[in-house]
Structures are given as structure tokens and as C-alpha cells.
Design a protein around this nucleic acid. Structure first.
Lengths: 186, 186
DNA sequence: GGCGATGGCTAATGCTAGTAGCTTTAAGGC
DNA sequence: GCCTTAAAGCTACTAGCATTAGCCATCGCC
């Protein structure tokens, strides 16, 4: 009975792999266990159960996206930074479409997910700083940004656009519309 | 053994009720059967199985939304009509938040759902007619509209906005941004 | 070398979807 | 008013899932 040498992170990684390959609905403990070369009950030594595993996958995905955000925002500011963030968002989703369905939409309401969600938020806030928005305007602005990015990503990742042609153009128009909704760049 | 007098539509209605009350994840044949006062296998006399039931629920939801669209667009045109459609969309989702998760995002790819999806599309196309957009511009415009409506609705229905305050304002700003992305109304 | 914690296992429970085959109901023809 | 028959219910069953309990082997440490 050789030991598989698992860890919580290894199980989460296997779960992400299962999602990438077979979609979010195929994420079962049985599938993860098979991929880990282990019997299903053994996973409970590393993870609290399916619900907790899904939460951990959510944390992973949120942090990966935050990493992309950080990389995209680095060395840019203003309009340039926001544009880079929007493209980083879409690039992550198109690279891992199935994974997007595992990204929680309300991370701030969940203690385990909040930290990762706040990381993203802070990067966006920093990118918006040049516009010097007051508190209320900032909330509305981030919401608009999020609606556009999430709305587009969720439709694209789910195959919601009839023809895949010219999606770049549609996304660019949405980004342009967002900038038009902002006061002039200082 | 008195007969329950079920029908396909009655089963679909029960499924919608289960979703409204307990969320999309609670939609199981067992739950629907209980609500219908029937044993689970009996449902197969009216519905092909869980997958088909979900499709039928999707048809129902798409058609309900199309009905709202038709009512909202009636007697209006141009900017007024589009605004009414956007508010009808959001009103339906806030009235039945759990149901929104049952609305398929790619109805046109599924033969059973296509008709209902096309109904919605035609109403939107008619509302956009005053702008006399060429074919490509019309596609991009409908996509922008959809991204905004779906993005906002999916976040709101899932509790994705931190504080519920001022959501009307955010939505209005998005609608305004959409109009700004259109050529001047003729 | 021994000991305890850890990571694996099998067995068993209870939930789910779905199938097979039986029985009763209810509608329609005579 | 009866008799046939299709439809609509049922029970019993299989198979896959998550989860729990309890057992045993492995590994790190003293």
C-alpha cells in the first residue's frame, strides 16, 4: 500500500484539472479521487468534503485572476491600466473557459473567499485612482466595469454568442462605452 | 390509487416552483415528485428525465421573459422601447431570482430552445429599427445590450453586489452608457 | 527500535437518476 | 351498462454519488 503523497493543494489542483477537462458538472469527489490515484474517502483526509473543495477551487481561481490583474496593471496607469485589466480578465476566461463557472460571483460574502476578492478590488481601485472619483461614484464605476467584464466573460465562456466572429470588436466597443461613462481623464 | 392528473406542463410548473422556493440546486426529480404528490418514477410518464425537464424549464423561462419583452415594447419606440426592455429584463429577474439560473445562455444552439430565443431577439431587433444599423453594427449592438442586461442580472440575482443600495442608479448608468454607444437617434 | 500521528483502505448508509414490469384507472366503442 | 385498452400510476431494482466509521499500514521522530 504505497502512499500517494497528497496534500490539500494537490487535491485542489486535481479538481481544477477535472473542471478544465470535463466541465464544472463533472467535478465529483469520485473523479478527483481517480485522478489522484486514490479511493474517494481518502480525500477527506485533505479536504472537508465536496462543498469545501468547491470553495477552495473558488479561492484558487480568484487568486489566479488577481495575479493576472497584478501583472497587467504593473507599469501602467489610467486608461491604459483599465484596458489591460479588462483584457486580462477576458484572456483568463478564454484560456480556461470551464474554470470560469467555478468562480464565485459573491466572494465578499464568504469569509474564505473574501481575501482573494478584495485583492482584485484593490487593484481595480488603484487603476481608477487618476479619475479621483468620490466614494459613491467609485462604487458605481466598479460595478459597471464588473458588469461588462463578467457579462461578456460569462456569455463567451458558455458559448452564449451565436457566431464567434468579431468578438474582439464587441468587447472593445464595451470598453469604449465604459470609458465614455467616465469623466475626462485628468 | 386515485390519479394525480398530471401533465408535462404541470410537472414543469412544479419544477419552476421548486426552483423559486429552494434554488436551482434543489431541482431534483424527487423534489418535483413530492410536490406533485407522486412517486419519482411516475414523472417519466410526462417528462423524459431530469435533463429534459431542465430544458423544458428553460423554454418556459425564455418564453416568460419574451412575454414581458412584448408587453414592454408595445406602444413604445426608439430609446423609450429599449429602456423599457432593459427594465423588463431586470424586473423579471428580481421577481424570480432563482429562476434566472435556469435560463439558458445559449438558446440558439439548442433546437428546443431556439424558438423562444428568437422571439426575444426579434423584439429587440424591432426596437432597434429606428437607428437603421447595418447588419454588423446590429450584431454588436445586440451583444452590448445583452452583456449589460445579463451581466447585471446574473450578478444581482446571485447576490454579487456587496451592498444592495443604489443598484437602480448603477443600472441606469449602464443603460445611459449603452445609448451613448449608439449613433444619434434619427 | 518503538510510538504516535497521518494517510491510506474497505464496508456500509442514504441519497440521487433511471429502468422494468405490474396494476389500476378512466375513456370510448359496443 | 359492460369490456377493451391506452395511459398513469405503483413497487422493486440497479448504479453512481457523498459521506461516515473504523481498520491498518506507513512515516517521522525520539
Amino acid at each position: 500500500m504505497p502512499r500517494a503523497g497528497l496534500s490539500t493543494q494537490a487535491v485542489v489542483q486535481a479538481a481544477v484539472d477535472v473542471i478544465d477537462e470535463h466541465g464544472i458538472d463533472a467535478l465529483t469527489l469520485a473523479a478527483v479521487a481517480t485522478r489522484c490515484g486514490v479511493a474517494a474517502p481518502s480525500l477527506y483526509k485533505h479536504v472537508g468534503g465536496l462543498a469545501e473543495l468547491k470553495t477552495q477551487v473558488g479561492v484558487r481561481v480568484l487568486n489566479e485572476l488577481a495575479d493576472r490583474f497584478a501583472a497587467a496593471a504593473m507599469g501602467r496607469s489610467g486608461r491604459d491600466a483599465i484596458t489591460a485589466l479588462m483584457h486580462a480578465y477576458r484572456a483568463y476566461v478564454t484560456a480556461h473557459p470551464a474554470r470560469y463557472a467555478a468562480m464565485p460571483v459573491d466572494p465578499l460574502h464568504h469569509p474564505e473567499l473574501a481575501a482573494a476578492g478584495i485583492r482584485q478590488l484593490e487593484i481595480i481601485q488603484a487603476a481608477l485612482r487618476p479619475w479621483q472619483l468620490d466614494a459613491a461614484a467609485q462604487i458605481h464605476t466598479i460595478r459597471r466595469l464588473r458588469v461588462i467584464a463578467h457579462g461578456f466573460a460569462s456569455l463567451e465562456s458558455a458559448g452564449g454568442f451565436g457566431l464567434p466572429t468579431d468578438l474582439d470588436e464587441t468587447y472593445q466597443q464595451l470598453i469604449d462605452a465604459f470609458f465614455d461613462s467616465l469623466p475626462a481623464h485628468p
